[in-house]
């Protein structure tokens, strides 16, 4: 293949990535919209190390080149991730699009990335120089700005094995299928003996990156539901102050209003 590489092992892929100016190609569903001709692709679809979904006891490790369909078919993947992935586009796109492609495209509208934020997922990045594990929130530095060196590949997504069971998820789009998120919301709550051990809230398609504010979440951690109810107004007000939507296809005012409505719906759903 001239001007294109399809390595079958990670080692070969990393050597090629280090030696040439290459664009990693997962499913192609974002890249081919531009359909640039003067580009050299590194096709990462057939690398066995990037196609597995395994439970290592601590993390669910989702191979970067797993397609959305493969994620939906896996018995290991949590329901919240499946719900978000099932809302991506339509079957043909889900058969092609990959988990790392959704991340690497750098959009705050990426439906699977919202779940990675709320889960506190990490990314395993590998190059010929070595490897590092980066929290998803640190990986996104801004719109289309990623903490990914020119010789690195996203190889795995590390999803905490528990904590996503009690969730609230909404995607607001203009139609049922083939919809790009106008706004997306995910909230998870972890209760133990009536006490909030953990709460996470993330907003997609609002700003340059998915938004999650850990300091605001701390307002409710360690509280009972009854105590959390008393904090509800202050909790919502803190998000109102923190969320600063960018103007896009829909207005900033609309985005802010829907963010807060979905936050209220999440709290209502969980009895807070």
């Amino acid at each position: 293949m001239v001007n294109g590489y399809m390595p079958l092992s990670l080692k070969e892929a990393l050597e090629l990535r280090a030696a040439h100016e290459l664009v990693p190609y997962g499913g192609g569903t974002d890249l081919m919209i531009e359909g640039e001709k003067d580009v050299c692709y590194l096709f990462v679809n057939k690398i066995a190390e990037m196609k597995k979904i395994v439970d290592d006891g601590q993390y669910l490790r989702i191979g970067a080149s797993c397609t959305f369909t493969e994620v939906l078919d896996s018995p290991l993947v949590p329901q919240l991730m499946k719900e978000a992935v099932s809302r991506i586009a339509a079957p043909a796109i889900r058969n092609a699009g990959t988990m790392a492609g959704n991340i690497g495209n750098g959009s705050a509208k990426a439906d699977s990335v919202l779940i990675e934020y709320v889960a506190g997922a990490k990314l395993r990045l590998v190059s010929v120089r070595g490897e590092r594990v980066v929290p998803i929130e640190a990986f996104y530095k801004g719109r289309k700005e990623l903490d990914l060196a020119k010789d690195e590949l996203i190889v795995e997504i590390l999803l905490p094995r528990t904590g996503l069971e009690n969730y609230f998820y909404q995607k607001v789009g203009a139609r049922n299928a083939l919809a790009i998120s106008r706004l997306s919301f995910a909230g998870v709550l972890h209760l133990e003996d009536g006490v909030i051990r953990d709460i996470a809230v993330a907003f997609g398609a609002v700003a340059n990156t998915v938004l999650r504010f850990r300091d605001i979440e701390h307002m409710l951690i360690g509280k009972t539901i009854a105590e959390a109810k008393k904090e509800r107004a202050a909790f919502i007000a803190a998000y109102d102050a923190a969320i600063n939507p960018t103007r896009g296809r829909v207005s900033a005012e609309y985005r802010k209003a829907v963010c807060l409505n979905l936050l209220r719906a999440f709290l209502d759903d969980k009895g807070i």
């Binding site: 293949m1 192609g28 569903t29 692709y41 057939k46 043909a92 796109i93």
Partner: peptide
């Protein structure tokens, strides 16, 4: 549409439905 929105270009690739407008030829190897 050439952007994966309409499905008119659907083909089967290794038995799976794929939008052919969203595939670079290099991906078809094998």
């Amino acid at each position: 549409c050439k952007e994966g929105e309409c499905g008119a270009c659907s083909v089967l690739m290794d038995g799976e439905l794929i939008n052919s407008c969203m595939v670079a030829l290099g991906r078809c190897e094998g």
